[in-house]
Amino acid sequence: MTTPSNDPLHGVTLQGILEALVAHYEWSGLAERIDIRCFKSDPSIKSSLTFLRKTPWAREKVEALYIKLQRSKRPV
């Protein structure tokens, strides 16, 4: 029997995280929360994924925002 993972990012791709954040905040809201040029200047999923895969500090911020969003959506 497999125990479910407590990791909120388990089974979620970086692309899925980014798409969920863009769907919720839109690019402008995402750029306000995380100061990254690829969110401000001609943003796209593809260019953002390329940047985030090469930049650990930026990826950590995106993942943290995603976790915060998922926690706020959970019913209490």
Rank of each mutant, 00 (worst) to 15 (best):
E19M: 09
S5Y: 09
F51D: 06
K61T: 04
L9N: 03
A31K: 00
R33T: 06
W27D: 03
A58N: 03
S41Y: 13
S47F: 04
Y25N: 08
R53A: 11
T55G: 05
S41L: 15
E32F: 05
F39V: 02
V62N: 00
D7R: 02
F39K: 00
P8S: 02
A23P: 00
L14G: 06
G29Y: 08
S41Q: 14
L65W: 09
L49Y: 02
A23M: 08
D7N: 15
A64F: 05
R71M: 13
T3P: 06
E26I: 07
T2K: 14
G16N: 05
R33L: 15
T3Y: 12
N6P: 07
S5I: 07
L49I: 05
I34Y: 01
L69P: 00
T50A: 13
K46D: 14
K61V: 05
A31Q: 02
V76S: 15
D7W: 05
P75Q: 11
V12N: 02
W27E: 03
L18H: 02
P43G: 05
G16C: 03
Y66W: 15
L14R: 06
G11V: 11
W57C: 08
V22C: 02
D7H: 06
I45N: 09
N6G: 14
R37P: 01
S44N: 10
S28A: 12
P4R: 10
F51H: 15
L18D: 03
P56T: 06
R71S: 13
A23W: 04
R59Y: 00
K40H: 08
E63C: 13
P8A: 04
L21G: 01
H24E: 13
E63M: 09
G29F: 08
G16E: 14
E60A: 14
Y25D: 11
A23H: 10
I67T: 10
R37E: 15
P75G: 11
F39T: 00
S44G: 14
Q15C: 08
D35V: 09
R59E: 09
N6A: 14
I17K: 01
S44W: 05
Q70F: 03
R71Q: 15
Y66F: 15
V12H: 08
Y25G: 06
S5H: 11
S72C: 09
A20P: 00
L9I: 05
S28F: 04
W57K: 11
E63P: 04
I67L: 06
G16P: 01
G11F: 11
L9A: 03
Y66L: 08
S47M: 08
E32I: 03
Q15E: 15
D7A: 11
H10N: 12
Q15G: 09
V76F: 13
H24N: 09
F39D: 00
P43V: 01
V22F: 02
D7C: 10
K73D: 04
V12T: 10
R53G: 10
G11K: 11
G11P: 07
K73M: 11
G16L: 05
L49R: 03
S72L: 14
V62M: 08
D7P: 05
S44D: 10
N6V: 12
S44V: 10
P8T: 01
D35I: 06
E60Y: 03
D35R: 09
G16I: 02
A23T: 09
T13V: 08
I45T: 13
L69H: 07
S47V: 07
D35E: 13
L52Y: 01
R59N: 07
I17F: 01
T50S: 14
Y66K: 04
S47T: 12
A58Y: 02
P56H: 05
M1T: 13
L52V: 04
P4Q: 13
